[in-house]
Every structure is written in structure tokens, then in C-alpha cells.
């Protein structure tokens, strides 16, 4: 168990090389001086400079960020409500349909979700733009939030809520003071998931938007279709860097926290006969 066999070492090495080399190459070539992405012509940061002066990209980034923040926030509220309903709501009319609608978008091909939303927006005569992308993103990401939050709620000791009620809290107070703080980490990761899903989405946004709003993935898509460009490499590197540092910091913080809790629990056992 403690020593890996050579075969295991090889599979891990190749596995992680396969996962990370393409991204690493992308980052390296974003510092390439040459316009030809595959020929190394010396170190340069000029593509980052060009990227930052490209109005179209900056506009698209701003739209994307706006959509992601708004849609993930609404999705977190709705998704948490849905999770609470599914885990704690008991029986109500149409419960099966409700849970079906929560799980279906997770496996639905994006092209279908996108197509159906576009047809709805046209059907009710809605102007397509930032607003419709927000609606579309909220709809599918609330389902992801709800799955994350409900898996936390399922392991939540119900006696905690009962204890709060027993001590005089109203059901709403019990939720606000006890349940919410305890499931907060799951709610936060639900928000982060919704946020990255929204940042990342190309297909649904392409369907849901109109000529007035272009998101970053759509912008990347239209220039990528013409082939590899160093500017996109630079943009990709920035995005990879942001996400990687965010995730690494988050996991370090949560690891430090769990190590501390473990140490304290061990220390506490020594007070047993105090």
C-alpha cells in the first residue's frame, strides 16, 4: 500500500502529463514572440499587451463577468431552496416532476437546452441579450448548485434543527442561525461551480444571446475557428492562472482547517477526565 509499483507510477505520470501538458504548452506559447504559434521565436509578453488593448475582448470579458456573477448568485439562492425542498420538504404535489427537472439539466446536451431556451425567448418575444443569458445560465446552474447543497444537507444531523426549534427558534430562525451557517461551505462551492459554469459556457450562451451581447467564450470561439492565435493563448493563460490559483488557495484553506479541527479533537480527548 505504501509503495507504488512501477506500473502505478507510470500510469500516474502519463495520466497527469496527458492532463496538464496541453495546458502547459498553451501557457508557454503565450509568451512566444512569433505570430506562428508553433514556432518558438523567443520570450515576449506582447500578446498580453495586445489582448489588454483589444476593446472587443475586454467588452466580452465584462459581459461574461456580469452574467456569471448575477446568474450564479440567483442560481445559488434558487438551488439552495430547491435542495432544501428536496431533502426536507416532505411530500408535495409534483415532487417527482420537481426532482426530475432538477436532475435532467445535468445530463441534457447543451445544444438541446440552448435550442429550447432560444425558442422560448422568441416565442414570448423577449429581447435577447445579457438578460436572456442570465436566465439561461441561472436555469442550468441552479440544478448543479442544488445537487451540491443537497448532498451536504443529506448528511446534516436533523437533530440540530430540532434542537434550535426546541430552544425557541422559529423554523426560519433555525434555518438562518443553524442550518445556513453549517451548510455554508457547500453553498459557497455551489456558487463557485455556478460561476465557473457560466464563465465557461459557449453553447447555451450562443443560443440565448442576441446581437447586443457577446460573451468571452463566444469571442474565443469565433477567433479559434479561424485557427490558433497567440492572443487567445494569452487569454487562455490568464484564465487558467486565475482558476488554478483560486482552486489551490481554496483547497489549502480547507485542508488547513480540517487539519486544525482534527488536532483539536485529539487534544480534546485528553481532557476526558478533566
Amino acid at each position: 500500500m505504501n509503495r507504488l509499483s512501477p506500473f502505478n507510477v507510470v500510469s500516474l505520470t502519463f495520466g497527469f502529463a496527458f492532463l496538464y501538458l496541453p495546458m502547459l504548452i498553451l501557457v508557454i506559447y503565450s509568451f512566444n514572440k512569433s505570430k506562428l504559434v508553433t514556432v518558438w521565436a523567443g520570450f515576449s509578453t506582447k500578446w498580453y499587451g495586445e489582448l489588454l488593448s483589444n476593446e472587443a475582448f475586454l467588452d466580452a470579458a465584462w459581459v461574461t463577468l456580469k452574467v456569471a456573477v448575477i446568474s450564479s448568485s440567483i442560481a445559488t439562492v434558487l438551488g439552495t431552496m430547491a435542495a432544501y425542498t428536496l431533502v426536507r420538504g416532505g411530500r408535495f404535489f409534483g415532487r417527482t416532476l420537481f426532482s426530475g427537472m432538477i436532475y435532467a439539466p445535468l445530463v441534457m446536451p447543451e445544444v438541446i437546452t440552448g435550442l429550447s431556451l432560444l425558442l422560448l425567448f422568441i416565442g414570448v418575444g423577449m429581447d435577447r441579450g445579457v438578460m436572456t443569458i442570465v436566465l439561461a445560465h441561472t436555469t442550468f446552474s441552479m440544478c448543479f448548485v442544488s445537487v451540491v447543497v443537497s448532498s451536504r444537507l443529506a448528511t446534516f444531523d436533523r437533530a440540530l434543527e430540532e434542537a434550535a426549534l426546541d430552544l425557541g427558534a422559529s423554523p426560519f430562525e433555525a434555518f438562518r442561525l443553524i442550518t445556513l451557517p453549517i451548510i455554508a461551505p457547500a453553498v459557497v462551492s455551489g456558487w463557485l461551480l455556478a460561476f465557473t459554469l457560466s464563465l465557461d459556457d459557449l453553447v447555451i450562451a450562443s443560443f440565448a444571446t442576441g446581437p447586443s451581447a457577446t460573451t468571452l467564450p463566444m469571442k474565443i470561439w469565433s477567433s479559434v475557428r479561424l485557427g490558433v492565435s497567440p492572443e487567445i493563448n494569452a487569454l487562455s493563460s490568464i484564465l487558467i492562472g486565475l482558476v488554478a490559483s483560486g482552486v489551490i488557495i481554496a483547497s489549502l484553506v480547507s485542508k488547513r482547517h480540517s487539519v486544525r479541527v482534527q488536532q483539536e479533537e485529539r487534544a480534546a480527548e485528553r481532557f476526558e477526565n478533566d
Binding site: I25, L202, I248
Partner: peptide, 28 residues
Amino acid sequence: MMLIILPFWTSFLIRVYAWIGILSTEGL
């Protein structure tokens, strides 16, 4: 585990795009 999940958080589009430069006829 984190190393396996990490790519999932980065843009899907960019991860696919990265392969164009590798697989093309004059690619890496």
C-alpha cells in the same frame, strides 16, 4: 484528487483549443 478535478474548473473551450496547436499538421 485535486489535480484530477482542477482541469474541470478551467475552461472547457480552452482545453479543447489547446489540442489544435498540438495536433495540426505543423503542430507540436
